[in-house]
Write a protein that binds this DNA or RNA. Sequence first.
DNA 1: CCCGAGCCTGACAACGTTGTCCAGGCTCTA
DNA 2: TAGAGCCTGGACAACGTTGTCAGGCTCGGG
Lengths: 350, 350
Amino acid sequence: MPQTPRRAERPQGNRYGNRPTMKDVAARAGVGLKTVSRVVNGEPGVTPDTERRVQEAIDALGFRRNDSARVLRKGRTASIGLVLEDLADPFYGPLSRAVEEVAREHGALLINGSSAEDPDREQELVLALCARRVDGLVVIPAGDDHRYLEPELRAGVATVFVDRPAGGIDADVVLSDNFGGARDGVAHLIAHGHRRIGFIGDMPRIHTAAERLRGYRAAMEDAGIPVEESWMSLGVTDPERVRRAAEEMLAGPDPVTAVFTGNNRVTVTVVRVLAEHPRGVALVGFDDIELADLLRPGVTVVAQDAAALGRTAAERLFRQLDGSLLVPERIELPTRLITRGSGELPPAEG
Amino acid sequence: MPQTPRRAERPQGNRYGNRPTMKDVAARAGVGLKTVSRVVNGEPGVTPDTERRVQEAIDALGFRRNDSARVLRKGRTASIGLVLEDLADPFYGPLSRAVEEVAREHGALLINGSSAEDPDREQELVLALCARRVDGLVVIPAGDDHRYLEPELRAGVATVFVDRPAGGIDADVVLSDNFGGARDGVAHLIAHGHRRIGFIGDMPRIHTAAERLRGYRAAMEDAGIPVEESWMSLGVTDPERVRRAAEEMLAGPDPVTAVFTGNNRVTVTVVRVLAEHPRGVALVGFDDIELADLLRPGVTVVAQDAAALGRTAAERLFRQLDGSLLVPERIELPTRLITRGSGELPPAEG
DNA sequence: CCCGAGCCTGACAACGTTGTCCAGGCTCTA
DNA sequence: TAGAGCCTGGACAACGTTGTCAGGCTCGGG
């Protein structure tokens, strides 16, 4: 009778699209549940013969341990979260990769999230990661208030901020010497005879942008050069706006003879503008850009080491998880001035 | 008596570094467990007054739902995995970001993994993601045998391959028209008078590399040009080796007058070599590179749209999860020849 | 031959959440 | 005022795994 109604409806497995569980494996191998668990986790105390039977059942059924259940039981997820601004930005790719590499050394997976520089989205992402009970968080903040993380910190979620400090909470932070780097870059231009130096950067509410601006001002002040408002553009850095800002600085009766750009995206745009510009205008940019050495003139930059930022942060994160790290610290990595020509152009008057 | 031994040892919460659970929230709010669950999930059937009490308890304790337990219960993780070669490569950043964006639209998180072009590592990553019960996988394969995925596919894990097809299994794949793009690029060089055209590409075991090589050969054959072995370099693409290969092609009694490069990394290296080279050597590269338009000459490339690859793959993935997609398909996206100068140089004899 | 030691093995509870189901209290109507 | 029906709230099991613990087996020594 082919139509006999079956009592046991599920042939094997169940949800998760019919995945076999340890129970199924145990049944097939004719052993107890716990024995399967032991084999799967390589625990001792299983006869080679039993182990073989279990292994065969595992292979036959295509069993894979359900880590959700494991996590629930064990309390550690072996995964960490990374929240950054935009993975498509060439600055963050290497950073993310460095974090991943350290995570891998510690047997952890990396969950990425892009905040798109939106504080709400940052918070949403961070909390989603916490709900998944990541063991730790590496955050490149978009917002400047991170008190929403207090319960997480109390609960023992390891946390390291990168590139910009946290707001309102006391946490580890790894960043570049934005102030010193910008000051050195601008000083470099001054040393080559420039006095009217433009600055195009991001919104000052972003910590890195503010620090770089501060470096610019410091260098100018050190040289006794009063800064004019018209030399500065601080704001959204979409190419169109940057282009206009650069063109305005270069026009008029008293144009700048050099420009300091506040990040890689701005630098690229300004390089384009200068390529169309008749006069030689000096340029130093913050962040290295690919192929900068092949342009004529080569683009002089203040380079930061994105991979080192990521690596340092991740290593600190895992040291927090080891328990070997107690007091939050601020770690500043040096920047490096790479001269390639564009920063060494002399001022061309008029 | 302050020293009275307490029976209930845990003040609230437990593992996970003392996180409060719904039980703790329920106790504090003086309601049942399920009521808390209802509030947390915004389910109907809770009086405003009760809801307020629960919400206060949640805020006071800093409760966050434990998604591990939720996943265990519900069977969906709302996360997808992306395995690619190297996140630090400028080709993969935008691709990953595009996948993330689609995932976000569907309320899912993205877990990234870099295989470093190592088949074992690819498998390790994919299986780790499956153990975490990601709902779906986007894979840029490093290996060419994916039969290890069979149990996962049977279990209903949505899977889309990108950039290169899967080996040994029938699965969705989204890729660029590598053959056509390379053929067009080489034909472009031929149209500008070149006959001795070099090809520097990756190991032919990589599908994209093989296809581009095939395109090169096809274009040459179409033009009736016999290809000489010494014009081709297929292998590891570290800068040093590429540099040597390029220099060899350009030296000797019968040097190439143009080079077709098989990917972005190779192109960059060859641009460097050509910059030092006295003769004008034409160049067309596969993959666009940043600032290519600012070099002199500008670098002519066959561009593929990394973001479109990622977006298309992710959208297909979620359509698989909807159940609205049944038969695996192969989707090929067109490439685009962008002429900027380097590909239009005439052959400079001797 | 009997007993103890040591090794395998499996039954059971627990992790934190959600789905099912039922009880109790309320309102509204006849 | 009583009954019907609705709405709110809670008890309970289940998801798949691992830690605890106890039972049964074998083997060797007395």
